[in-house]
């Protein structure tokens, strides 16, 4: 199986970091993995996206044009990419920041006020990981074991508090709407 995932939002929202967490999950699960950032004269507040592919086959092109899964963390990203999602695909949106809705009936859209939930739970900046929690719950592309391994791999061991916060954010997303 191959999952092509596109994560998009503003610079500074942790789009690349969330992609890295997904990629490490794939690595922990011993799958084929690629992670490709959009790069350019980017800056905080500008747009930013990254392509992640998790697969059981060797990965050819690392660029994701028609994602199976789109995570949209701002309005421009949603408008730019929602029509590109494959039929049967899933879109995860941060409803605190995205107002538009898709008119497509061949995809499933999951909404979560991730930025608001992050603020309320003292996890400012953790909206990206809350969304990942929801993606885990609704797609099953990542196991609980792998997400924990991935987060402890990325967060420097000198900052154990960050592991705890990220795992808290995962569980907020995962349990949302349950």
């Amino acid at each position: 199986m191959t999952s092509e995932i596109l994560l998009a939002g503003f610079g500074g929202q942790g789009i690349l970091f969330a992609g890295k967490v997904l990629a490490y999950c794939g690595l922990a699960a011993e799958r084929e993995v690629s992670w490709l950032p959009s790069y350019g004269p980017e800056m905080r507040g500008g747009t930013c996206n990254c392509s992640v592919i998790l697969s059981d086959e060797p990965i050819g092109a690392p660029t994701v044009y028609d994602p199976d899964i789109l995570m949209a963390m701002n309005e421009p990203s949603f408008l730019k990419f929602s029509d590109k999602v494959k039929a049967g695909g899933k879109i995860f949106i941060d409803s605190t920041l995205v107002d538009s809705r898709s008119s497509r009936d061949d995809i499933t859209v999951y909404e979560i006020p991730a930025t608001q939930l992050a603020e309320e739970n003292g996890l400012t900046g953790g909206a990206n990981i809350i969304l990942l929690g929801l993606i885990i719950a609704k797609t099953g592309i990542i196991s609980d074991k792998d997400i924990e391994a991935a987060i402890s791999k990325i967060v420097p061991p000198t900052k154990p508090k960050l592991i705890e916060n990220n795992m808290k954010a995962i569980s907020i997303g995962r349990n949302y709407g349950c």
Binding site: K20, A23, L27, V33, S34, W35, L36, P37, Y39, I59, P62, T63
Partner: peptide
């Protein structure tokens, strides 16, 4: 090329 330089893989 820029794609190979920027992408991450295991």
């Amino acid at each position: 090329d820029g794609l190979l330089g920027q992408m991450m893989e295991p």
